[in-house]
């Protein structure tokens, strides 16, 4: 059923863009000296060296676990909250303005107060990541629930579907595309929060690695951290996108 697109020129041009960027970076590195700006070759070599060490893998694993847990739990919470908000107008109205207020507050701004309340354990990290994700997902879903075509709900009712059947069989499938879009979008959000929270309150993790590189003036390590984050994000996004395509194919269809 899935049609495979042939490898197009666009893909090649994309690769060319990446190569150009790497080349410019390398030239800049040569001009400025390796300790000021390490070039891509040096960072990549460091990457291949580090990826064989246990320490690096533990660092990446710690961050990944936080991001995925925070993202997963935040999404779940956001989904439930969004559905309730969209379904019960009065609840949505009550909660909407405070949510708009919190939406513009970056998760990192809440770190100090949460550290005072919760200490610097894992809970606070997952909470900070989940907070941003839940807000984005909830607002997306609430709007999607309200946009479900009245004719679709009416059709189901007139064919004899009860409220429970309409909820699980019509409302939920109708908002799945928006839910997945919101979840994918907020994955980027989760990666943004992880750096903030790890630089401020963590013993290990990629954010901590980047931040502590400053002390020893290890520019290459700092850039390795940045590279690691990017790769982690791309990998997570690809996995999530593939999972959606495999398990949610029919729900992504438009009428």
């Amino acid at each position: 059923m899935t049609s495979r697109r042939p490898l197009s020129w666009r893909w090649l041009i994309g690769l060319l863009g990446t190569l150009c960027f790497l080349l410019l970076w390398q030239i800049a590195a040569w001009l400025s000296g390796p300790s000021f700006l390490p070039g891509p070759i040096r960072v990549l070599l460091l990457f291949f060296e580090q990826i064989q060490t246990r320490e690096y893998l533990v660092t990446v694993g710690a961050s990944y676990q936080r991001v995925m847990l925070g993202w997963g739990l935040g999404s779940l919470f956001g989904l439930v909250l969004g559905i309730v908000m969209g379904r019960y107008r009065w609840f949505g109205t009550i909660i909407y303005s405070p949510m708009q207020f919190f939406r513009v507050i970056p998760a990192v701004a809440l770190v100090p107060i949460l550290v005072i309340w919760l200490g610097v354990g894992e809970t606070i990290k997952i909470l900070i990541i989940g907070y941003g994700v839940a807000l984005v997902v909830a607002i997306n879903i609430a709007e999607a629930v309200q946009r479900v075509a009245p004719a679709r709900l009416q059709a189901a009712r007139s064919m004899g579907a009860g409220p429970l059947r309409i909820f699980w069989g019509v409302l939920i499938p109708s908002v799945i595309p928006e839910a997945l879009k919101g979840m994918r979008g907020s994955l980027a959000f989760a990666f943004m929060s992880i750096v903030g929270i790890e630089t401020l309150a963590a013993q290990e993790g990629v954010g901590q690695m980047i931040w502590s590189a400053r002390v020893l003036h290890q520019t290459d390590v700092a850039l390795l951290g940045v590279l690691t984050l990017g790769l982690m994000g791309v990998l997570a996004d690809t996995v999530v996108r593939l999972a959606f395509r495999i398990f949610g194919y029919r729900f992504m269809l438009r009428g």
């Binding site: 009416q154 059709a155 007139s158």
Partner: peptide, 20 residues
């Protein structure tokens, strides 16, 4: 209330379930 003894055809094709 609604019931299956009265079948409705809507103007909008959004009445169909796109995932089925």
């Amino acid at each position: 209330g609604p019931g299956p003894e009265r079948g409705v055809v809507f103007q909008s094709d959004t009445a169909l379930f796109p995932w089925l």
